[in-house]
């Protein structure tokens, strides 16, 4: 990468962080880990249930304290199949990703769908599959993938 004719040096900007889940995120990930359920926050002012949950409403700026359980079943709204990995290298097994919407929730979740790409279609019903209890850490990856119902 370093040119012969012109001086160029490789360098990096190493930066490490601890990311804080926050009040809403903490409850969301805790519910996934302990109870295998998705929880959203409800805005009575706007009659909107946010998934993922937030502490405040982006429309009216109310503080949100009401929690609602979201069903573990949803519908595929958009699909893509990644044939390359995060660095652009060809994947041995393509990764099917979908935006899944849930009845009664505004928002949704993007995650891997554990099906051959040709079997996934818009509108299909899928279910959230969680990691086994002992392996869950209270993170987004406690959701393993979506599977067909």
């Amino acid at each position: 990468m370093v040119g012969e004719e012109y001086r160029r040096w490789e360098g990096d900007m190493e930066a490490l962080y601890v990311y804080t889940a926050g009040v809403a995120g903490d409850r969301f990930f805790r519910e996934i880990r302990d109870n295998e359920r998705l929880m959203g926050t409800y805005c009575p002012e706007c009659d909107v249930t946010y998934l993922p949950p937030r502490l405040y409403c982006e429309t009216c700026f109310s503080e949100l304290n009401e929690w609602e359980e979201i069903p573990n079943k949803g519908r595929v709204d958009a699909i893509t199949v990644a044939y390359v990995d995060d660095k652009g290298e060809r994947l041995a097994r393509p990764k099917v990703l979908a935006m899944v919407r849930f009845l009664g929730a505004n928002g949704g979740l993007i995650h891997v769908v554990d099906l051959p790409e040709e079997d996934v279609y818009r509108g299909m019903e899928v279910e959230v599959v969680y990691l086994p209890r002992g392996l869950r850490k209270g993170s987004f990856l406690d959701i393993l993938h979506f599977k067909a119902i």
Binding site: A78, T80, A82, V84, D85, K95, L97, I110
Partner: peptide
């Protein structure tokens, strides 16, 4: 805390 953890190329969003 969410989609960065998917370990996917960022252009997946353009695909969606």
């Amino acid at each position: 805390l969410f989609y960065r953890l998917l370990n996917a190329h960022p252009h997946f969003l353009a695909g969606l």
